[in-house]
Design a protein around this nucleic acid. Structure first.
Length: 752
DNA sequence: CTCTTCCAGCTTTTT
DNA sequence: GCTGGAAGAG
């Protein structure tokens, strides 16, 4: 295994310990992907068959990258037979295989967020609820949260906590909406993104033999970005590895920035509770950034209380200090940034592609784009409206979806009258209400002439029949013809191509090009599939595309352009020069998070992610005024700038920056965690940090005054008093973060 | 049934 | 400042 030479000792350990549970804490830039790829290559080299290795990532991009790197280390065949992909793609593959057990067909549709919202909107209408009170977005959020925590509709309705919370929010009917939503999804033979994980859990719960099969199949399980897993994902992994216990998770708690999507940082903090025999590997050497950047980032992240103790260090050169740009308006901020990029690019001979401008919200990109354009600096913007979210693409996709799955209600509603067939709102409502009453799908209604003639007049029925016949004709061919044949013919037969061709405006031309591009994508899919001897049918194409995001097929990726993106989407990437714009209070940290400590810590981790994307140079910018939601507002510099040890900032801080006031002990003091002293009494600062790796659940009987404990939410603390007995036993705890809490031991999960 | 205008919303978002 | 749904007019 000569490739093992290319690893440092810590990485090597993590790569070689292939048996049993391993937790790899990989700091920013510490070679996380390297460890994962070499570990897999090592398994393959030891003779583990590729199909028994399951490697889960969060993005297609990460999966592709790993696949590429592994195939450079081992033979192509081994690399391509690995089960490697995103949670969603791997488990939708398994679900398609087992779909009939759960009452779905193997051609089930995957609803995107828009589909889900539309369906929820129509259910809110059916229930005669006010959609100003029940905002589809919020309702979907509640349902999604429930699903990610494996709370199905019935359980939701029975959980008094949840129901009370909904009542308190003046939305007592969410449980009902959830139930109907789930029924309707099933009737449409559709799963939303969260279902892909929830239904996998249900599959494994209700069909032990199926679980057994996959347990035996996947002898080695690897998970990337483990700090971003939600409960649903956590449980799938746990079930799969319960017996062989060859599970390796890799992550960094300091980069957990997706809690708003249900990610649970506890999953990584608790790994050794589920796997007490697990080995811990900490990768603390950063290879990416200068020492200045790493130390500056440390000085920020060490302010967080919730974290696994570690100190990332760099042995690279010291590098430049962090520069701060102060502007008087958002426009000027853009100009200053463009000017800096221009200056550095010329003066230091850097390429434009060596720069990324990051921001907290997508809305900030516009002004930056204008400034870059004015200076003729080429750029590309990540995020925003993706290719597959464009109207014309969604229309075409709706045709393809309906052809594969006639019961797909959202697809049908979208295109039954596009291009116009004189089948309007009223008619669709009639069909919908009959379908609802008969508990069948819309398609069932429109393909039954008796039902149809009862609700609409003769000419309307004719028009609907025309549409039905069109779709049917193609549905009959899905198992025979290739995806491309069908897509190409329906584009013409549906009238979509004609429709967009009639529009000579630039937008119309662009729409036509987009449709052409989609057809090209189908073509290339069909051709590749044909060449590799795998299924080239439309259903497979849809499966692939529904789990794709824009970043996955970025055509400008290797051109010389400045990158503009949110900090969230920058995670996992690196650039020589990073510019973080909009370093202002109420923007970053965002307004909503500035009061809640947990949310603030997440924002701080986000800032940490931003800083650690940089290899050589970091520039932070802010403006004292900003145009926002229609008006110019006065702004303050972000507290995060003040949290960087000024040692690493260029020049002296301008007093005009008006730093927000902070409590004196927090100001600019940065100590490595090891240097914190452990001593005698119950002074807050004397409570030791309990290394998370050694945590074990504490026996409630063993708790007495003076016991040092660890609480997942509040951190380290010391019991100062105990009261009550048995189930009522309570402990008064002084936490290191300064708070005192009385905890009912029956419920509080304490560790020591 | 269709077209236009009006109005509310608005953090991040790997799938 | 932009988008997408709702509502009103023809």
């Amino acid at each position: 295994m000569n490739f093992l030479n290319e690893l440092n000792s810590k990485q090597l350990e993590a790569v070689e310990n292939t048996e049993g549970p391993s937790l790899v804490i990989a700091g920013a830039g510490s070679g996380k992907t390297r460890v994962l790829t070499y570990r897999i290559a090592n398994l393959l080299a030891k003779g583990v068959p590729p199909y028994s290795i399951l490697a889960l990532t969060f993005t297609n991009k990460a999966a592709k990258e790993m696949q590429k790197r592994i195939s450079q280390l081992v033979d192509y065949n081994s690399a391509s037979n690995l089960w490697m992909g995103t949670f969603h793609s791997i488990f939708s593959r398994i679900l398609r295989f087992e779909a009939n057990k759960l009452g779905y067909s193997s051609n089930f549709t995957i609803y995107d967020t828009q589909d889900s919202k539309n369906l929820i909107r129509s259910i809110i209408g059916d229930l005669k609820l006010d959609n100003k009170v029940y905002k589809p977005n919020d309702v979907l959020g509640r349902i999604s949260m429930a699903k990610n925590n494996l709370i199905v509709a019935d359980v939701y309705a029975q959980s008094s906590n949840i129901i009370n919370a909904d009542k308190k929010a003046q939305k007592p009917h969410i449980a009902e909406i959830y139930k109907l939503y789930q029924q309707r999804c099933k009737q449409c033979d559709a799963m939303d993104f969260d279902d892909l994980l929830l239904q996998t859990n249900i599959l494994f719960r209700d069909f032990p033999d199926v679980l057994e099969k996959y347990r035996n199949k996947f002898r080695y399980v690897l998970v990337d970005e483990y700090q971003d897993t939600n409960y649903s994902q956590y449980l799938i992994i746990k079930k799969l590895s319960q017996y062989h216990r060859n599970i390796c998770v890799v992550g960094d708690d300091a980069q957990s920035i997706y809690s708003f999507r249900g990610a649970r940082i506890e999953n990584i903090l608790n790994f050794n509770v589920d796997y007490p025999e697990s080995k811990l590997f900490k990768l603390e050497r950063n290879y990416r950034s200068t020492t200045t950047i790493v130390d500056a980032a440390n000085s920020v992240i060490h302010r967080n209380k919730e974290q696994i103790p570690k100190t990332i260090f760099s042995e690279n050169e010291r590098g430049e200090k962090i520069k701060i740009l102060r502007a008087l308006s958002d426009k000027e901020e853009g100009n200053l940034i463009a000017g800096e990029i221009f200056r550095i690019a010329n003066y230091e001979q850097e390429k434009f592609s060596d720069f990324a401008v990051l921001y907290r919200t997508n809305a900030q990109s516009r002004i930056l784009e204008e400034s870059l354009r004015r200076k003729n600096i080429p750029y590309r913007v990540y995020g925003g409206l993706s290719f597959y979210q464009r109207k014309e693409i969604k229309d075409m996709m709706a045709y393809l979806r309906l052809i594969v799955n006639n019961n797909d209600e959202e697809a049908l509603k979208r295109i039954i009258n596009y291009p116009q067939r004189k089948i309007g709102e009223t008619t669709i409502e009639k069909i919908r209400s009959l379908a609802l009453q008969k508990q069948v799908s819309l398609w069932t209604v429109i393909s039954n002439n008796d039902l149809l003639s009862a609700i609409v007049n003769r000419p309307t029925a004719e028009r609907i029949n025309g549409f039905r016949a069109l779709i049917e004709k193609f549905s009959e061919r899905v198992e025979i013809d290739s995806a491309y044949d069908i897509a190409n013919s329906i584009a013409l037969a549906s009238g979509i191509v004609e429709e967009v061709s009639n529009d000579a405006t630039p937008e119309g031309i662009s729409r036509k090009e987009n449709i052409q591009e989609l057809l090209n994508a189908v073509k290339s899919f069909s051709e590749t599939a044909y060449k590799e001897g795998i299924n080239d049918k439309l259903a497979v194409f849809l499966e692939e595309v529904s789990l794709l995001t824009d970043q996955d097929n970025d055509k400008n990726a290797d051109t010389n352009r400045v990158t503009l993106m949110t900090i969230h989407s920058a995670k996992g990437l690196e650039f020589p020069n990073i510019i973080v714009s909009g370093m202002e209070e109420e923007l970053f940290p965002s307004q909503q998070s500035s009061t809640r400590n947990q949310a603030l810590e997440e924002e701080r981790r986000l800032f940490y992610v931003a800083l650690t994307r940089a290899e050589k140079r970091v520039i932070l910018s802010f403006s004292t005024t900003r145009y926002r939601n229609g008006q110019t507002m006065s702004r303050h510099c972000s507290r995060f700038i003040g949290e960087i040890n000024p040692l690493y900032l260029e020049g002296f801080l301008d007093p005009l920056m008006e730093m927000p006031r902070r409590e004196p002990e927090k100001t600019f003091s940065y100590k490595r965690p090891e240097s914190r002293t452990v001593a005698t009494a119950q002074k807050v600062q004397d409570i030791p940090d309990i290394p998370f790796a050694n945590l074990t659940p504490v026996d409630t009987d063993a708790i007495t005054a003076g016991t040092f404990i660890y609480h997942l939410q509040f951190g380290s603390g010391q019991v100062i008093a105990v009261e009550g007995v048995g189930a009522n036993k309570k402990a008064k705890v002084q936490f290191k973060n300064g708070g005192v809490k009385v905890l009912l031991l029956k419920f509080a999960k304490l560790y020591k």
